[in-house]
């Protein structure tokens, strides 16, 4: 779910940057200086976790994890994903400067939406946690693929087929993300339940 350099039109690239700037500003405003270290180190751990290649049949996929990022960081997902993608660009050359804004948007908007849609259910309804966590992982990737498709269609209407292909190709990823999110959230809710809410929400320390 990564749109390469040189594909999108100027207006899409610029709006991507503008919206990412707004989201990042909201995220940074919610973070005090004492949260900066937490976002930084967690962002590094999401970066490493997204390098894990999970087998699926004869091939493998790497996880996107924006559902979990959203649950753990809330609006902090914007700066975290922006930074992770910048590092990915500098260290591995996955993507460059112009598509940074739109690619951050594609991953961070679903993250924040998942935080609002599923966060409180996961925290407060232990019975529903499995189903909700699956929905969270699945929806985050699904929305990301839809946003990526939308960015392509806004660039060039002929991208319609490509956009549909992107969404269809991501269905296995959505299912695997859902499954991994179920286990990961289940694990965190047993071991460290207080991590499952964005830390700017409450004052009690971890």
């Amino acid at each position: 779910m990564h749109i390469s350099e040189g594909v999108l039109s100027g207006s899409v690239l610029i709006s991507g940057f503008a919206l990412t700037a707004v989201g990042t500003a909201v995220g940074l405003k919610k973070l005090d200086y004492e949260h900066i270290a937490q976002v930084g180190v967690l962002s590094a751990s999401f970066f490493v976790a997204s390098l894990i290649h999970v087998p699926i049949g004869p091939s493998n996929v790497h996880l996107i994890l924006n559902g979990i990022v959203g649950l753990l960081l809330g609006w902090g997902a914007f700066p975290a994903i922006l930074v992770a993608l910048s590092l990915q660009a500098v260290l591995f050359q996955f993507g460059g400067i112009t598509s940074l804004g739109i690619n951050t948007l594609i991953m961070a908007v679903p993250a924040v939406m998942c935080y609002y849609l599923f966060g409180s259910i996961i925290r407060n309804r232990p019975k529903w946690i499995g189903f909700t966590a699956f929905a969270c992982g699945f929806t985050a990737v699904f929305l990301g693929a839809v946003l990526a498709g939308a960015a392509l269609i806004f660039t060039e209407e002929n991208f319609l087929t490509v956009s549909a292909l992107i969404i269809v190709a991501h269905i296995p990823v959505m299912i695997i993300e859902g499954i991994v999110t179920v286990f990961c959230v289940g694990f965190l809710s047993k071991v460290r339940p207080e991590m499952l809410s964005a830390f700017y929400e409450k004052e009690s320390r971890w």
């Binding site: 976790a49 179920v182 071991v191 460290r192």
Partner: peptide, 14 residues
């Protein structure tokens, strides 16, 4: 893999 990631997240928070 999910537990491994969970462990990485917990350790990073600490």
């Amino acid at each position: 893999y999910a537990y491994l990631m969970g462990m990485i997240f917990i350790r990073s928070v600490d």
